[in-house]
Nucleic acid binder design. Structure first.
Lengths: 185, 185
DNA sequence: GTCTATAGTGGGATAGAC
DNA sequence: GTCTATCCCACTATAGAC
């Protein structure tokens, strides 16, 4: 009665766990705190889920579903620069759910516990916007790096970080030359 | 007898702590494990350092000194594309010391415990290579993002990640146009 | 499906003797 | 500068009664 966390009580536990995580961060997401928030004792949780890893995986899957949908909506407007549109949606998701974002991106993904195809679905809009897997990977690295360095306050708090975003977006907007600037053949 | 960890025993403790970290990762860096590695009991450590945070800060400072020197050497060869040269040195450092790299870049910097100017010194070579603080920030985000996503195995293990590196390096090599491509004025 | 009780592990840190 | 003894904390998880 637990593996995929599909019972209604199971879904409630995951929802409350996500709220706890989003409100107070990953270190607050303990079985004791979660039980408190539900008004039960920690051991009772194990009637609904096998272990903590399954809880985290369920929360992560939840986050990916939501992010994927947001990215798909953003790429649908079609009017704007597709990379800029993706970046806006990505930054909005991370800003709205910083602790969830960290859980989703910090450390290896528990892929075997996630729904098939979910990771690929989430990645698809950026793949589409950049036009190639290699460029998508580079663009994701830039975007994720900016997000995480900002969250960790690794940049000075001046106006330059917005310029850095612009700089990266324009760098990934159009395919770069394959060799250093020379006169066109 | 502890704050800056300047005594010879203090320096030895930091060195052994760094070895432990590099060999087994951040979760192995406990006061008990460190004491074991030194052949003493954990409480004895507190005669040499005030708390665990000071140990981590000293290890981080150690890593920054080493990284800064490596980056300075790499920018000195002058012959090559400066961004590519920096990336090579940065990747080499992270690959040689992945657990140290994570400690240095994961989470906020304990700046008040680090030598003045060390962070700026480490950042200087990339600033030089990119030509502007905003571009340096964007390039660092790309490079750090690539490193951390690779370490966490977030990319598929195909040949495309090397292409992503190339893609990012060429994207940050030359200043991009400030507006979409138009004919030069 | 909830409870009490508890096992088992690990962590950082202090007091005070030597 | 090292020791022993210990405190206090927190965590995941299980057993078995109700």
């Amino acid at each position: 009665m637990s593996e995929p966390l599909t019972s209604s009580r199971g879904r409630q536990i995951v929802a409350v766990g996500r709220e706890l995580l989003e409100r107070e961060g990953a270190e607050a997401l303990t079985m004791r705190r979660l039980a408190d928030a539900l008004g039960i004792r920690a051991p009772s949780l194990y009637k609904h889920l096998p272990d903590k890893a399954s809880l985290e995986a369920a929360i992560i899957a939840d986050g990916f579903e939501q992010a994927a949908t947001a990215f798909e909506v953003a790429s649908d407007d079609g009017v704007r620069d597709p990379v800029a549109a993706f970046v806006t949606a990505y930054r909005a998701f991370a800003a709205a759910h910083p602790h969830l974002y960290r859980l989703m991106t910090g450390g290896p993904l528990p892929r075997e516990r996630l729904p098939r195809g979910l990771e690929a679905r989430t990645a698809a809009p950026l793949l589409q916007a950049t036009g190639s897997p290699a460029r998508a990977r580079a663009a994701w690295a830039f975007i994720h790096g900016m997000i995480i360095l900002e969250l960790d306050e690794r940049f000075p708090s001046d106006g330059l970080t917005e310029m850095a975003w612009e700089s990266g977006i324009s760098a990934f907007r159009t395919p770069p030359p394959t060799s250093p600037p020379t006169s066109p053949a």
